[in-house]
């Protein structure tokens, strides 16, 4: 499995962290691309909620957790606090919900939330986080 990019957004839609392992196409303006990405999954979440065939029957709503195009797949994870993470991989990746949860609870929470020097849900730079994420990514890519 090949991993392309990783992005984290807070509830206000700001990109608080991103990581790029591999990119074939350079974006013209990274800032605009991140905003576009946020807009895309924000809209897609609402779309999924409206298309839910079980709407009205039970609460909790319906969310999307991945979409695949012909040559990349985007995995999406959201917490109750409004923190959102996206990971793009090649299309052969399976269901990565467990991976996304692992990145959140064992990497983000451990290295950012529990770090008294960093404010949660704010833009951060953390070498420890990057290192842990890169290590996990490299085992995923080879595994």
């Amino acid at each position: 499995m090949r991993l392309y990019t990783f992005h984290m957004f807070n509830a206000r839609g700001e990109c608080i962290h991103s990581r790029t392992w591999h990119r074939e196409r350079e974006s013209a303006d990274e800032n605009i691309e991140r905003k576009t990405l946020f807009g895309l999954f924000f809209t897609m979440k609402d779309f999924a909620r409206q298309m839910d065939p079980r709407r009205g029957e039970e609460d909790g709503g319906c969310n999307f957790y991945a979409y695949a195009t012909n040559d990349y797949k985007l995995h999406y994870f959201e917490t109750a606090t409004g923190l959102r993470m996206t990971l793009t991989t090649d299309v052969n990746a399976g269901d990565l919900r467990a991976v996304m949860r692992h990145v959140y609870s064992n990497i983000y929470v451990e290295h950012v939330v529990k770090n008294p020097g960093l404010a949660p849900s704010e833009v951060f730079e953390s070498a420890a986080f990057d290192q842990a994420l890169d290590e996990y990514a490299s085992v995923l890519a080879n595994g």
């Binding site: 591999h22 074939e24 576009t36 809209t43």
Partner: peptide, 28 residues
């Protein structure tokens, strides 16, 4: 859907993306 299909191409990290082929949601 038409717009999301087009926007997915704009945020693609790869070069040959032509649009979304599938979406996996909790209930459908």
């Amino acid at each position: 859907w038409h717009s999301m299909h087009a926007i997915a191409r704009k945020v693609s990290p790869t070069r040959g993306c032509v649009g979304i082929e599938s979406v996996e949601c909790d209930t459908f």
